[in-house]
Amino acid sequence: MREIHVSAISDAVKKLCMDANWDLGTDMLRAFDRALTTERSPAGKQVLEMLKDNAQMARTQKIPYCQDTGFVVCFVELGQNVHITGGLLTDAINTGVSQGYTEGYLRASIVKSPFDRKNTGDNTPAVIHVDVVPGEHLKIMVMAKGGGCENRSKYKMLTPADGLDGVKDWILECIRTAGPDACPPLIAGVGVGGTFEKAAILSKKALFREIGSSNPDPAVDAIEKDVLERANRLGIGPQGYGGDTTAFAVHIVTYPCHITSLPVAVTIECHAHRHKEVTL
């Protein structure tokens, strides 16, 4: 049994929150460069150049890449031989979020109740998903999830008769209707299968895969590439000003499902795709 004190968890989460908001991943920077070689729209190219500039400025001056510094979505892999000491895991994560957002000059964007809408002041609480896994490690994956694109995420219960074509059409429909509102170029995280809530959680987790990487399942990889190609023929383009770069990636994660069901959840993510992870 390995012991991990809550203070180590808080410290790690604090750093992840700040780094995620300041330091856009190199996979995203490569995606900007790739798009600049194929984008035909002058306005689209200007947007992509500005985003590169923005990433550089955020990293060097420690100003958040986007003023919407997001809802912290946290996926935790907890080794079952780990014993957390000094407090509760969720409290430790939220302490880290509070410290990271306050000390990092990141925006507080969370309201305590959906109805009274009073800001909690430190961007807590996070949305936390914990998986218990074999081993003695604690892996923490943090995403600063923007609200504008999250508002365009969708869910649909398809039927087995809708099949693969139905799934593809639905993902494409989600990207099309997200349009200029969700800050394209977009990334679609897709959860297919499971139940209502399982598909939604998988659609978030799908976003953590490296942009530009292939899906480990060749059959699913082909589906991703086909939908991405069709998405980039929609013409929406960077910021919706028209162009060839509407989406950077479509990431699909599947799970077994009931004989009667074909659930599909699509999390829409903007180009401010901010996530970091650490293993303690």
């Binding site: 923005n54 100003i63 986007c66 800050c183 910021q239 903007c270 180009h271 401010a272």
Partner: peptide, 9 residues
């Protein structure tokens, strides 16, 4: 329209 997600710049 201002460029969304270019808040630092």
């Amino acid at each position: 329209g201002a460029v969304g997600g270019a808040g630092a710049v």
